[in-house]
């Protein structure tokens, strides 16, 4: 299988502290990856590095064999889209206006959005169940609606890789599942590569093809959920006591925290 994203010997210094140290990773096309790990593990820093929002100290990142160092912001946006944890907008931007921003990397400065762009936007809104929010101001949207609009915008970029930084941690259970289903569907049907930082281990197990566990800027373990979510790894990573049982419905590992 071809790799879409390769990280080689990556080291990142963050205010004098090594946020990521000598990290090597290889992501394949059309898979759902989840990054787990305690706070300060370097998960968000890694996403920032891939999206060129932080300086790389050592090592390099390749997207489809191109070093991101050589990619302009606009060209990077054609290959990678991003969904943040939360978006706060104080202005009355309409749903469609926000999704349309996803077409910016494909447009010249003075070029007007054409019918092709509008139909891509429409399609993205259909897939995220946001068509009805077309003419609604973002200031009047709920957290879940807003996050689906942001996913639609990322989708309108037509980038092969989508980075998601704790995309559901501000949402209620219903909206969490809805967002996760949308992403999973995009991976299955459109060959999207999703790289998602999560905190909920059970959610990660249910949706991911592969899980990466990070701690203190290094990779602890990477592989299929069944192989990775083991009592020793989780206890070592998070410093808590857990029990792992077989989820009777999915037959995947299910984690229960035990307070002692």
């Amino acid at each position: 299988m071809s790799s879409v994203l390769e990280i080689k010997n990556l080291t990142i210094d963050y205010n004098g502290i090594k946020a990521i140290e000598n990290l090597n990773l290889d992501f394949k096309r059309g898979k759902f990856y989840t990054i787990l790990g305690p706070n300060g593990a370097g998960k968000s820093t890694l996403l920032k590095a891939i999206s060129k929002n932080i300086d790389i100290m050592k090592g390099s990142i390749f997207i489809e064999a191109i070093n991101i160092k050589d990619l302009k912001i606009k060209n990077l946006a054609k290959k990678i889209s991003m969904v943040p944890q939360e978006t706060s907008i104080d202005f009355d931007l309409m749903g469609e206006e926000i999704v349309l921003m996803g077409r910016i990397p494909h447009l010249k400065r003075l070029e007007k959005e054409g019918s092709n762009d509008l139909s891509i936007v429409r399609e993205a809104m259909k897939k995220t169940n946001t068509l009805h929010l077309r003419n609604r101001s973002v200031t009047k949207m709920s957290g879940g609606e807003k996050q689906r609009i942001i996913v639609a915008r990322a989708l309108a970029q037509e980038a092969g890789i989508m980075l998601l930084d704790e995309p559901v941690s501000q949402l209620d259970l219903h909206n969490q599942i809805e967002i996760m289903n949308i992403i999973r569907n995009l991976v299955n049907k459109e060959g999207l590569t999703a790289i998602c930082v999560l905190h909920d281990i059970n959610l990660a197990v249910n949706y991911s093809d592969e899980i990466l566990i990070m701690k203190s800027g290094s990779l602890i373990s990477m592989g299929k959920p069944v192989d990775i979510i083991r009592q020793d790894i989780i206890e070592e990573t998070y410093g808590i006591s857990v029990k792992i049982i077989d989820n009777p419905i999915t037959n995947k590992p299910f984690i229960i925290h035990v307070n002692i």
Partner: peptide
């Protein structure tokens, strides 16, 4: 950060 992610320099 978001603007940068969809191609705004």
């Amino acid at each position: 950060t978001q603007a940068k992610s969809f191609g705004v320099d």
